[in-house]
Structures are given as C-alpha cells and as structure tokens.
Design a protein around this nucleic acid. Structure first.
Lengths: 238, 238
DNA sequence: TTATTCTACTTGTATTTACAAGTTAAATTT
DNA sequence: AAATTTAACTTGTAAATACAAGTAGAATAA
C-alpha cells in the first residue's frame, strides 16, 4: 500500500466486479468467486469485500444466498430509468427510434414550473427539448425536457437522434443520474397529445413528471412524459 | 443475552429506529443519536449499529453526512412501495383509511394468472384479499393481492384495517420485500372499477401489475392495482 | 472585531477474529 | 443400492479495535 489513490478499497472492488459482470466475464446465473477468494485475490479483508458485494446487490448485479454464494444476475438494462415492455415481445433498441421535435434551445424557465428550482438553476436558465419516441414506427412516448444551462458547452449543437440524452450527459459532460422522484397519473389525451401519439381524443394516457438528481450539486433534469399505453406498458424493476 | 430471539441485532435496532422516526420521536431534519450513543444505549458495537443505519438509508428514512450525523428525512409514506402524493397537501396516515373488501381467504390460484408461479407457490395455493383505500374519505386505490400460502399461521384471521400488509408480513412473519417488477398502464375504468373508485365510466385509471420479491425463497407477492389519479398521483423515488 | 487555529465531536474505512447457519457433495452406514 | 451422516465449503452475524476525514464551535491570535 503506497499512496496511489484515495478511492476506498471497497469501491475499487465494486468497480472491478461490476465491469467484469457487464463485460461478460461472469455469466448470468453463475457464481462469483467466494468472499474468501476475493479476499485473497485482492488482498483485503472480508468485511471490505462484503461492502463491495452489498453495493452490487443494491444495484442489482448480483443476488446472494447463504451457504451458496453470490449469483450473477442479468445486468439491469435501463432506458433512462424506465423500460418499455411490449405486449407481444421484448423490444430491442433496434425498434426504438427517436424523433427530435424541438432541438435543444436555451430558454428562460417556464412561469409555472411544477418543480421548485435551486438558486443556481434559476440563474442559469434552461435548455429545452422535445422528443417523440417510436416503437415499430408507432409513436408511444412524448417527452419534454428541461435541463439547467450549467456549463454544458456545445450542448445545443449536439444531435440526440440516435443517442440517449443520459448517455450524452454521462460521457460528454460527466453528469450521472443518481436517482430522483416522479409522479404518475392517468390522464385523457388532449388534442396535441392525441395527435402526437396517434390516439383518439380523450383516450387514457400515462403521464409522468420527473425530477432527476445528478452527481453535480444542484443540477437536476426535469422531464414531462406522455406515454401511449394501449399496446405497451411502462416496465420497472426496483 | 439469553436465547429469547433469533432476530439479528441489527434488524431489531432498525425496527426500533424506524418506529421512532415514523412515530415522530425524531423530527424531520433533526439528527439521530450518534452511532456511538446508539452503541451505548443498545449495548452493541458500531458495525452492528451501522448495519441498521445503512438499511435505514437504503429505505429512505435517514441520510448520513460524514462529520455531522444521521439526518432524519420525511418518512416515505409507503403504500407498498409506491406512495400517494396529493395535489393539495401531503397526506398523513390519519387521512388514509383502508377498507377490506375481501378478507384474506385461501383459494386456488386463478386460471389465467398473468405471472408464472414457482413450483412451491403452485402447490401451496394462495391467499386472496381485496382492499379499497380512501384518502379524505374518497376511494383512490383498489388492489387485489395474491400471496402464496406458505407457512403463514393465523394469517387469514388477522385484521389489516389499520395495518399495512407489508408491515404485518415484516414484523409478524419476518418476510421482507426485496424489490420486484411492475407494469404500468393507463386504462379506461370499467363498470366495476368506476363504481369502486367513484368515477365516471371510461375515465382514465392508472393500472399497475406487480410481482414483489421477498427474502423467502420462491415467495412472491402478486398485486393488481387500480388507482384514481384525478386528485392524486403515484409518487415514487428511486 | 475578525480571522485563524484548535479541539472535540461526527461518520467513513479497514483489519482481525469468532462463531452461526445454510448448502453441497463425498463418505459412511444401513 | 439407498439412506444417513459427516465434512468442507458458502454467506450471515457480531465483537473489539484503530485510524482517517469531515464538521462545527470554542479558544486563540491578529
């Protein structure tokens, strides 16, 4: 042990194991090396190993069973945070298309914004964008996003056609979503929504309002979503 | 320490602190006793206390800050995993009433059950119950529950009027919900639902189908929920 | 008075040790 | 051969101990 890093050991082990699971070193359903083996390999003690494994359990990468071991689970595949589940079959990314209705543009925050803004968010102004998502060429998902305009160079020039908003934020700006809160409602489709989602007027639509936390202090992502749930469901694990 | 119980210490501490937070012994925003104080009071060691506090963090009852302490958060008002958020104000438990439409009874599993059952669940048969939840004396929440009849003595005799189903399972049978999956849809209220939830026929209703995992192997809780979202929302943090 | 330093707290990380309890498969007995 | 026991694993719980790092307020110095 020299002085090379300030990252705790248990986090390093977590990252190593997580990477190995995601890259397929350990197959789904197979067992991770036992806690004692991990101790020997990484030259740490069991409580530290267990701290890393507890985090992996919490994040859904493994499940543990007393007397047996740590079982590798199918890594959670998020689409944002929610997933879409079709009535017919699972939906691969290849069937999911995104149309940008409103390219990212800088605007002031709306008058009656449903969420309370932090001071720094208020001063920064916001970036606004609208998207429409298609499954099998049918519109199912319309979302409006408000993002604080806090040090995001060239953001409004980026294309989000084929990339996830979250992926861009994470890889290009080191902004990671850390959780958040959401409100769900079933509402009648108004004229605009019914037109966008190709539905009769007044048809039930799932409406979601979310505020997402990030690793950047005081930086939140605000989304309003309308979801056509006639042929699909919002699917979530927790 | 005689032999009185097999419940781990850290779980007992968790239950005590959880109860104290929920009953208002510790105010929102205030600090919990320090880890060392809890050690002294309950005559246990710090790792054990920390195990209990970690669980409280995970379940959203406290947040911790190094150098400061454990900060009590507004307890999440779970109805199961989801919470209800009113448009007007926060909803205290005093406004939430539960009516049992169908007392727990042992039945065979339904013919076309939407979930696949494990072998042991299939053999056990199921306990069926229906509930209607009221906020401010208006019905908002109708749920049907299927629970495997696996070693739950006196379960059908219990009253769930004022107690959460999950709380009973956790405290009386040591069954803890460990997560699960759910599907959400917006649907039109049929005749039964519109009558139960006091809504016009065809009004949008939030429908949720869930399968909850527990710490007991092969034991899942299956729920179907209809939610009147005209005056309230389903609220969730993640 | 104001700014700095110090001190006494807090939680975070980590080691070491011990035993309990569940699982599995080999070894043994019937 | 079949059933049982045993042994060697696995994770779960728990104690005792040590030091690191962040926080906040008191004591001190400018």
């Amino acid at each position: 042990m020299t002085e090379e890093s300030k990252i705790p050991q248990h986090k390093k082990i977590y990252e190593i194991l997580r990477k190995h699971i995601l890259s397929g070193v350990y197959e789904e359903g197979s067992l991770l090396p036992s806690e004692n083996e991990l101790c020997l390999v990484h030259n740490i003690t069991r409580p530290t190993v267990r701290q890393a494994l507890d985090a992996l359990v919490k994040d859904g990468f493994i499940s543990k069973k007393q007397g047996k071991g740590s079982i590798v689970r199918k890594p959670p595949q998020d689409i944002g945070i929610l997933s879409i589940s079709g009535t017919a079959s699972a939906i691969g990314n290849q069937y999911l298309k995104t149309q940008i209705l409103q390219k990212p543009q800088i605007k002031p925050w709306p008058e009656n914004f449903p969420f309370e803004l932090s001071e720094i968010e208020n001063e920064s102004g916001c970036i606004y964008m609208e998207r429409l998502r298609f499954v099998n060429d049918q519109p199912v998902f319309y979302d409006i996003n408000h993002i604080p305009n806090m040090n995001l160079p060239r953001f409004t020039n980026r294309s989000f056609e084929n990339k996830s908003l979250f992926e861009t934020l994470r890889t290009q700006y080191q902004i990671e979503v850390r959780g958040g809160e959401q409100k769900l409602k079933a509402v009648k489709a108004n004229q605009m929504i019914s037109k966008l989602l190709n539905l009769p007027l007044g048809e039930p639509v799932l409406s979601i309002e979310r505020k997402l936390n990030t690793n950047r202090e005081g930086f939140h992502i605000y989304s309003t979503i309308w979801f056509n749930s006639t042929k699909h469901s919002i699917f979530g694990t927790f």
